[in-house]
Amino acid sequence: MNAETWRGCGAPRQIAVLTVWCLRTLVSDRRVVVFSVLQPLIMLVLFTQVFGAVANPANFPPGVSYVDYLLPAVLVTTGIGPAVAAGASLVREMDRGALTRFRAMPLGLHWVLLARSLSDMSRVGVQSVVLLASGALLFGFTAHGGVLGSVAALLVALLVIWTLMWIFIAFAAWLRSPEIMQSIGFVLVFPLMFASSAFVPVANLPGWLQVVATVNPMTYAVNAARHLSMGEPVGTSVLLAITTSVGLLAVAGFLAARGFRRPLTR
């Protein structure tokens, strides 16, 4: 009879259980798995073929090919999609299923967001590894900065994407409208991706776009990842990318948690 009564558990266990749950949900959809692996490959094919055709080899140092220049950037830009999607799916799922139940349970709701972001990031991590491996094996990518440089580039890219993801999660937690999220996605994705140093050097962009690219945080992330991967002197790029990321991450995380905790109204 009067068996166990459970009243809740500590944060580490909540995070672990929730993350495993999110991962299982993610993996249970086979399409997601297949698409996750295909997406970076498609990006790499498209970008190397489209931009590679017009990229001027004279712009690169000897021995450096366009794919060497491009791949660290794609490492960063592949994450934009999942970051936007994290916000969109939160809006979609916020008022149904387990996410509504959790509100009446002894949980930290912010751990729910953390778990979701961790599981989404694991997907980005897999994509990045696929990208690096296929780049090296199929597209002739050479990591001039060595394995260590590539790993460092990967870590910086993941940190930046995680930050971007939290920014979209914060938008989702406050705005709670699929339409607005979609608009924000449309408005931000392309400038973030293309008005940056990702595909061509900023100096080669038209003047006004140079201004945009200079304030685009993606530029710093791409520069840092590129310097690390290509084994160039990193200068301040890595420090800049990491500090801005961590700063934004803290703000976005705080706002996301605050926004998500507000009651659902229907």
């Binding site: 459970w6 809740g8 259980v17 949900t25 249970s28 139940r101």
Partner: peptide
């Protein structure tokens, strides 16, 4: 407030684990 893509069992186990 249940997860559609999980089984009934998984829904119950998830909540039980979260409760400790």
């Amino acid at each position: 407030a249940v997860e559609e893509q999980l089984s009934g069992m998984d829904n119950l186990v998830l909540v039980a684990k979260l409760l400790g």
